Amino acid sequence: MSDVQFAAIETPSAGALTIEYRWLNRDRENAPLLVFLHEGLGSVAMWKDWPQQVCDAGGYRGLVFSRPGYGRSTPRPAHGKWPVDFMHRQAREVVPAFLDAVGVAHDEAHPVWLVGHSDGGSIALLFAAAFPDRLTGAVVLAPHLFVEDVSVESIAKTKTVYETTDLRAKLARYHDDVDSAFWGWNDIWLNPEFRHWNIVGAVASIGVPLLAAQGENDEYGTMAQMDAIADHVPHAQIVKLPDCGHSPHRDAPEALNAAIVAFIGPAGQSDQSENSLPAQSVA
């Protein structure tokens, strides 16, 4: 991608890092900004066209970036392992440092929304809990609040696929260091210590507007994740998508885009509360 740029950041845990990023519709200076946080094997390129589609649907600006270890960002150190609290560190160290580096500041005239998928959704939830003054709200797609058996079983199967098929070659199209991306994600999720990871307590403190969406056929998590959000963040809007797996933006983009635009509101319409959806299943 010729319009990809790079930002230098510094974090307490990882030191100096280079972050790959891409702006969408940057000329819409006063439009809401959607900052996209990818899943555990994602990157700027792996989002493909969906961020552009949803930004065009609502008239938004967009900012897509690859977290450390993914895409063309600084890879995971050789033989390094993500710690159990890696998503907390991403939310509290990497995301704020990156937003500062590229000049993103939230205020009434420049609303900022996080849009996170899977691990990126969990990171968005943790950021919303820790830095409520830095964003207008968040949209999370198939986030994890705790580890389920179905998650571990699916990730274990993916390990076998990576080792025995052409999956590695396919993922290498999207990551400069494909083994950094895959094994960083796979090793931590299959680490027995990670089975105790749980962010329900942190999520309960979220006060900003929150839309959570998940496919009813999600192979990496059950609706217990959505139910936990509904129980602990009563103001959250829940969308359960039928005939949809772990990636709503790929499996049900039209329904998802409509839900997001209805929740955030089209550009130029500032009162989000008038456009929020009730908890529902989208047919």
Rank of each mutant, 00 (worst) to 15 (best):
S205H: 12
G184T: 04
G184L: 05
S247L: 13
N217K: 15
W183S: 00
V200A: 04
T222G: 05
N186V: 13
A202I: 09
N217L: 15
W185C: 08
S205V: 10
G184R: 01
N198G: 07
D218E: 06
L190E: 08
N186P: 10
H196M: 15
G245L: 11
G184K: 06
H232Y: 10
G184P: 06
T222A: 05
S247Q: 14
D243K: 14
N186S: 13
L211W: 06
D218N: 08
G184M: 02
W183T: 03
V233Q: 03
P248S: 03
A230H: 09
V203G: 06
A228F: 04
H232P: 10
H235N: 11
P192L: 00
Q225C: 01
T222L: 04
I199A: 02
M223S: 15
V208D: 08
N186M: 11
N198H: 07
Q237D: 13
N198V: 03
V239A: 10
D231W: 13
D227E: 11
L241P: 00
W185I: 08
I188W: 03
P192Q: 02
W185D: 07
W189E: 12
A224I: 11
Y220R: 07
I188H: 03
G221L: 02
V239D: 08
G215I: 03
K240N: 08
S247M: 15
G215R: 03
A236G: 00
W185S: 08
V200W: 04
D218P: 07
S205E: 10
H196C: 15
S247F: 15
I229S: 02
D187A: 04
L190G: 07
D231C: 15
P209T: 01
Q214T: 12
I206V: 04
E216H: 13
G215D: 04
V208Y: 07
I199F: 01
T222Q: 02
G221C: 02
N217I: 14
V200D: 03
A202E: 12
N186L: 10
E219Y: 13
A228R: 04
V200N: 00
V233G: 04
